[in-house]
């Protein structure tokens, strides 16, 4: 782990591995549908060899995508300190956000239909600055609710005027 994006304590709290599973499913659907469509169209216009090329390209893309998903999942992390929340994410473009609890305006917990099926929720913190990017995806609902309540309580305790 590099020093620049090192966790404040021992390790980052990681997000649920089911987030990676959800993304793999989405990737699989996209690649199968995309490859099939491209292969059918290709063989229609240019012959069977283009279909083979497309399928090979699809397989390569799938392997690459699986690798990316895994790396991206590993990059997510958060840590709760006494006065602020730290969120890190990104592999190619890394980011580490520090949001003081006292600056929090509101907390969102979101869960789409697919996320719900996988038992996941996204917690997002908002401050008075739209640039604040403190989103933690892939939390189990219990953890999301716990985090939301804790953040709301801490936000109230440490609130400061604008």
């Amino acid at each position: 782990m590099d020093q620049v994006f090192a966790p404040p304590g021992e390790t980052w709290q990681q997000v649920s591995h089911r987030l990676a599973e959800l993304r793999r499913l989405l990737l699989g659907i996209c690649i199968v549908v995309g490859t099939a469509a491209a292969a059918v169209l290709g063989s229609w216009f240019a012959g069977w060899w283009l279909a083979v090329v497309t399928v090979v390209a699809g397989v390569v893309a799938a392997i690459w995508g699986l690798w990316l998903i895994d790396r991206n999942w590993r990059a997510w992390g958060y840590a709760e300190r006494a006065d602020d929340l730290l969120v890190t994410c990104g592999v190619l473009f890394k980011q580490l956000t520090v949001v003081p609890y006292g600056r929090m305006q509101f907390v969102d917990v979101k869960s789409g239909p697919l996320e719900r099926r996988f038992g996941l929720a996204t917690v997002q913190l908002h401050t008075a600055s739209p640039a604040t990017d403190a989103r933690i995806p892939g939390l189990p609902p219990d953890e999301a609710a716990r985090l939301r309540d804790r953040l709301a309580a801490l936000g109230e305790a440490r609130a400061a005027g604008l």
């Binding site: 473009f93 580490l96 956000t97 640039a131």
Partner: peptide, 22 residues
């Protein structure tokens, strides 16, 4: 409001990073 540390691929190669004070 919040503070962010960001680093892109070229910045990483050069051991540089950017801090945003939001």
């Amino acid at each position: 409001q919040s503070i962010r540390l960001t680093q892109g691929p070229i910045q990483r190669r050069l051991a540089l990073a950017t801090v945003h004070v939001d």
